[in-house]
Design a binder for these strands. Structure first.
Lengths: 137, 137
DNA sequence: CTTGAAGCTCTAGCCACTAGAGGAATTAAG
DNA sequence: CTTAATTCCTCTAGTGGCTAGAGCTTCAAG
């Protein structure tokens, strides 16, 4: 049995966040000690690890609720849903990467321009004038 | 003189967002018509374009407040600050790209695995078991 | 002059936490 | 066994960056 602090250390999820997940119905209310403190078992720990991992992958708490529900039942259609959710998410992640790469290029241009030659540095002009952009966005 | 709706169309910033920026002190309160409606001039428009562009580059409203302040004064140290802010931001963007690429790889693995062979599909196991990850995160 | 779109202010909601107050329980040291 | 430090509890409120809606007023086209 683990205290919430233990679980926090093991999962790298902050204590208030664990309580928040409980409140949001992502995890069941765990048993309590005589003094009303939360006590988690291995299963609770696993569930939180699942959640943290899915969060790192960028899934919303709503998605995770679905994924967790699916992970409890083992029917075929549910698993298709898992693939659908992951697939949708993959698209979004790819779009974000593409977008960030454009931003990277522009920021590079901004932050590498010579900071010494003050007056003709185009940083702020770049920020205000869209036509300076290397790519549209 | 442009109405807030005009400005919204020209800058692609939604009307309530423009009012929000005013409330947050990012733009000055514009003149008003006789009937108390906001009227913007070219300068107001430019300022909002600056903001939108900086937002697209991922700067926070706080950063943008600084950048705007700098864009009004033209001293050397300020411009160095611009470079610093942009540089810091570049680092963060690069980190995000790297992280997203790892996620992309993992999501690819999840969403491409055969949805037909149900029972031994490792999607949910992947989500729960960190050791399956191709790279640590 | 009418009507419908667009404007106004104000409050509240969104997500996923995070912070703080004020108090109770647990644990390690002496 | 007692003390002191730490962790835990609940509860409320705040964060960023908007977004939505209610209920009203103003503007512009026909």
């Amino acid at each position: 049995m683990f205290s919430i602090g233990e679980v926090s250390k093991r999962t790298n999820i902050k204590v208030p966040t664990i309580r928040y997940y409980e409140q949001m119905g992502l995890i069941a209310s765990p048993e309590r000690s005589e003094g009303n403190q939360r006590r988690y078992d291995r299963d609770g720990l696993r569930r939180l690890e699942f959640i943290r991992h899915a969060r790192e992958l960028g899934f919303s708490l709503d998605d995770i609720r679905d994924l967790l529900r699916m992970s409890e039942t083992t029917d075929a259609p549910c698993h298709e849903d898992v693939h659908r959710i992951a697939g949708e998410h993959l698209g979004a992640v790819r779009a974000r990467i593409a977008r960030l790469k454009r931003l990277e290029a522009e920021l590079e241009r901004i932050s590498l321009c010579d900071a010494g030659s003050v007056s003709d540095c185009a940083v702020l002009e770049t920020l205000s004038d869209h036509s300076h952009c290397a790519s549209e966005h």
